[in-house]
Write a protein that binds this DNA or RNA. Structure first.
Lengths: 327, 327
DNA sequence: CTGAAAGCGCTTACAG
DNA sequence: CTGAAAGCGCTTACAG
C-alpha cells in the first residue's frame, strides 16, 4: 500500500507538498500538482484516513443506536439518516441493541475511542451523566423517543398530541372501551399513553387497567394481544390503540383466524403509517409520522454540531391521521 | 481527552508499561497493573483506536453494500450481519447505493483508505479488476446476488433450483401462462429467470416475452405490474412469479381494487418468506430463503479472511416452498 | 510556491 | 518485570 512518502519520491517533491496538493491547499503550482496527481494514479494511492484522523481530522463516521433494524420504522429512519450523512460526507454505523440496554454504553464508548464522531440515540430510557455530557458536547443527539425523567432535547413528534389525534378519532367513531398496546413496560414518562388517557378523560371515559397491554412488539405481539383479549372473560374492548402498524397488522391477521371482522367487531388503529399499512386487508387506519424528516433533522443536527456549525432551525414534526379501513 | 501519556504520568510508570497493561501483556506486575487501572479510571481514559490502527491494528469496522435498507430482505440480512459482526468485535457500516451504482466504487475505496477492514457486497452486477483483487485478498465477500459474467464465489442460495421449486408448483396447480416479474432489467446471468424458463420448458410450456415484466420493485412495483397486466388486450396470465414478497403484497392489494380474487383469478407466488407474507389477506405462498444463515455466513467468512483464519465450511443454503393461500 | 521537522497516540523491538 | 526510542502516515506551523 503506497504511502504519501512513496508519492513524494515518485513525484520528486516533498511530503509537505503532496499533502498540500491532497488538501487543495493554495500555493501549489499547477505543474507540481499535475506531477503529483500522476504519481498518485501510478501508485494507486489513497490517503490513509487513519493517519489523517490522528492528526485531528474527524473520522467522518457517525452511529445510530436502534433496537432492531428489522422494525420497518427504524429501517426507514436509518435510510434517511444514512442518505443525509452520505450527502455530507459521513458514513453511518448501525448499532443494534436488540433490547440489551447494556450494549448502549458500549456503543457510546465508540465516541471516546474516536471511532465515531457522534451518535444518534433513538430510544433512550435512562440518561446517564456521561450521556448528558456528550449531548452538551454535541456528540449525541436524541431522536424519536426518550422516556427518562431529565429534560433533554429530543428530535421527535409531539407524542401526546399524536395519540390525542388517534384516540379522539376512535371516540368519535363511538368507542368507549379502548385497549392500549405498548412495546415497553409501563412508564410514567410515556407521553403517548398520557395523551391517550387525557383524551379519554376529556370524553368522560374511564380506562380500565385490564385494557393495558405491555410488551407488545411487532406482528407477533399483535397476535398475542388478540389472543389474550379473546381469552379474557371480562367485557372486551371494541377498539385498540395498537401503537404501531406492525402490531396492527398482526392483530388484523389474527382476527381473521378468530373470525372477527375488522373494524366492526374490533377497530384497530395503527401508528407510523408504514408502507405495510396500505397492504393489509382491511388497510390500516393509522397516524402518519414524518419519519423521513425526523431522520434528516437528526443527522443534520448531529453533523452540524460535530462541525461546530449552527444547527439549522426546523419546522415542528407534524403527525396526521390517515383514514383507511381498520377503524 | 486523556492520553496514554497522561495515564503513565499519573501512575508513575512508562508509557510502554501502560500499553502493556492495556493489551494484557504478561510481565506486568499485579501491583503496577492496579496502579495503572486506577489512573485510567481517574482520568476516564479510553485508548484512542485511531492511534492503535495506525500502528497496524484493524479498524474493526466492516461494511455492507446494499441497495435499500427499507427493503425488508436487506433489513433482515443486515440484522444478521450486524449481530454476527458484533459478536466478533466488529461494527457494521451500512452503505446504500439506492440504485446509484457509481456509489459502489466510492464505498469500496473505504477499504483502501483504511476506514473499513472489508465489505460484503450484496448485489453486484459488474466485477471490476479492483473488486476481483479485493476478493482475492479476502477484503470483499459477495453475498446474495452476482449477475456478472466472471466466475466468482458468492454466498447465496441455489437461485436456479429455488425458482424451479416455485415454478413447478405453479405448473402443478394447472397454470400454463405465467408472468415473470424482476426488479432488474433482463440479464443473461439471471439464474432465477433461467430456472423459471427451464421448468416451463420441461413441462412443454412456451413463455411469451409479453409476460416478462422488468424493473418491478417493491409493493409499488407489484401494483404497477397488475395495472399493466390488466391493461393488455392479449390473453392474461393466470399466475405470476413475483420474485419478492413485497411485490406479491402489492399485487394482492391492487387485485382487490380490480375485484380480482386471489388465487382463483390470479395466483401470486412470492419470494423470500418475509414476515409480511403471513400478514396479507390472502397470505402469500412463497419460497423461503435462509436469510439469517446467509447473513451469518457472509459475516463469518469476511471476518475469518480479515483475520487470516480458515473460513469455516458451511452447509449449502437451502430454500423451501411455503404454501399459504395466494397460489 | 516549497521543504525540513515536530507531533498526533499508540505499539513493539531492543536493552536492561 | 520495566523503560527509552523509533515509527505508523499524515498535517501544519515555521522558515525560506
Amino acid at each position: 500500500m503506497a504511502s504519501i512518502e512513496d508519492v513524494a519520491k515518485k513525484a520528486r517533491v516533498s511530503v509537505t507538498t503532496v499533502s498540500r496538493a491532497l488538501n487543495n491547499h493554495p500555493y501549489v503550482s499547477e505543474k507540481t500538482k499535475k506531477k503529483i496527481e500522476k504519481a498518485m494514479a501510478d501508485l494507486n494511492y489513497f490517503p490513509n484516513n487513519v493517519a489523517q484522523q490522528l492528526r485531528g481530522k474527524k473520522s467522518k463516521m457517525i452511529g445510530v443506536i436502534i433496537s432492531y433494524i428489522t422494525n420497518p420504522f427504524f429501517a426507514y429512519l436509518v435510510n434517511e439518516i444514512e442518505k443525509t450523512a452520505l450527502a455530507k460526507g459521513y458514513n453511518l454505523v448501525v448499532l443494534q441493541t436488540q433490547g440489551n440496554l447494556e450494549l448502549e454504553d458500549f456503543f457510546i464508548q465508540l465516541i471516546s475511542k474516536k471511532q465515531l464522531d457522534g451518535i444518534i440515540v433513538t430510544n433512550l430510557e435512562h440518561a446517564t451523566d456521561n450521556i448528558v455530557q456528550l449531548i452538551d458536547e454535541g456528540k449525541i443527539i436524541l431522536c424519536n423517543r426518550y422516556i427518562g425523567s431529565k429534560d433533554l432535547p429530543v428530535i421527535q413528534i409531539d407524542e401526546e398530541a399524536a395519540s390525542y389525534q388517534g384516540t379522539k378519532f376512535l371516540i368519535e367513531k363511538g368507542h368507549r372501551k379502548i385497549a392500549f398496546c405498548t412495546g415497553n413496560i409501563r412508564n410514567a414518562h410515556d407521553h403517548r399513553f398520557k395523551g391517550f388517557l387525557k383524551t379519554l378523560k376529556e370524553a368522560g371515559i374511564e380506562f380500565s387497567d385490564t385494557d393495558y397491554y405491555e410488551n407488545i412488539l411487532g406482528a407477533a405481539g399483535g397476535r398475542q394481544f388478540l389472543q389474550k383479549m379473546m381469552a379474557t372473560d371480562t367485557l372486551r374492548p371494541t377498539a385498540v390503540f395498537s401503537n404501531g402498524d406492525e402490531v396492527a397488522a398482526g392483530i388484523i391477521s389474527e382476527a381473521r383466524k378468530f373470525q372477527l371482522t375488522i373494524p366492526t367487531d374490533l377497530a384497530v388503529l395503527g401508528f407510523d403509517d408504514q408502507p405495510m399499512a396500505a397492504l393489509t386487508n382491511p388497510e390500516i387506519t393509522t397516524i402518519h409520522q414524518p419519519i423521513e424528516e425526523m431522520g434528516r433533522l437528526a443527522a443534520e443536527a448531529l453533523i452540524a454540531k460535530i462541525e461546530e456549525q449552527p444547527v439549522p432551525k426546523a419546522a415542528p414534526l407534524e403527525t396526521r391521521l390517515i383514514v383507511r379501513e381498520s377503524v
